[in-house]
């Protein structure tokens, strides 16, 4: 894997307020092209809000954001051509079959037919849905829907990929197969921004990890350095040490 020094994602002093609450509190972050960055945090810490800001879904209250060289929120249309987003919710249309869902998103990205067909076949095969691609999605299991959701995010071969808890609700086999697939994306020099609650996932996949709590980015480093710096055995212990044991309600 090769990480380019060119920053693909830049956040500088970003604040996002919802009423009086700072959901994102003065976050500054640089993610290089080809890097896989993992964002960890308790429920309601601000992870999804950060993803939503970087995808152009919400505007920050203040601060500076560029993604793929496009300044936000000015260049939203350009940004959306180069990003692929797999949201936390399993967002697929249940009354369409798998292929129709993919066709819809190919159409929304105005893909050329031949390229679309190649990508569709490739992704369906890699994520194990090829043989059930004509089945109605409402009959899919939760894990199958998550994998389809991933295909919808990647059908147009985006350079920057946002994966908001991509393996949530998957059985261990499906999770491992998705990890293998994400590793392949990494090898294609894609920039990947991942949020997860699975520490093993972050430790296995990510070049660097950031821990966010109460909207603040409280630590950023490689998983190995975070473990060493905090004198613990694994990333989960780092997380507990920095974010505490108290159960939080979401903002």
């Amino acid at each position: 894997m090769q990480i380019n020094a060119y920053p693909e994602i830049v956040m500088e002093n970003v604040i996002k307020k919802f009423d009086d609450i700072n959901a994102v509190d003065n976050v500054s972050l640089r993610i290089a092209r080809g890097e896989m960055f993992g964002l960890l945090g308790p429920n309601g810490a601000g992870k999804t809000t950060i993803v939503n800001i970087l995808c152009g879904l919400i505007k920050p209250t203040s601060g500076f954001v560029t993604v793929g060289g496009y300044s936000l929120p000015k260049n939203l249309e350009d940004l959306k051509r180069i990003i692929g987003v797999c949201l936390q919710e399993t967002t697929v249309y249940p009354y369409l079959n798998c292929e129709e869902n993919i066709e819809l998103f190919g159409g929304l990205h105005a893909m050329k037919k031949d390229l679309f067909e190649i990508r569709k076949r490739l992704l369906l095969t890699k994520l194990g849905l090829y043989n059930v691609s004509r089945k109605k999605v409402e009959k899919y299991s939760g894990g199958m829907k998550r994998r389809l959701s991933l295909i919808l995010a990647l059908i147009h071969d985006p350079q920057i990929i946002f994966l908001d808890e991509p393996t949530i609700g998957m059985d261990p086999q499906s999770r491992r197969s998705v990890w293998d697939f994400i590793k392949e994306l990494k090898n294609e020099n894609k920039t990947i921004f991942l949020t997860t609650h699975y520490m093993e996932e972050a430790e296995t996949l990510c070049d660097r990890v950031g821990i966010v709590d109460f909207g603040k980015l409280i630590a950023v480093d490689t998983p190995k350095n975070l473990i060493l710096k905090n004198g613990v055995n694994n990333l989960e212990e780092v997380f507990i040490k920095l974010a505490g044991r108290r159960i939080r309600d979401g903002v």
Partner: peptide, 9 residues
């Protein structure tokens, strides 16, 4: 789904 569609161009 509306949110997801808004992530496309």
């Amino acid at each position: 789904m509306l949110k997801r569609i808004r992530t496309t161009p």
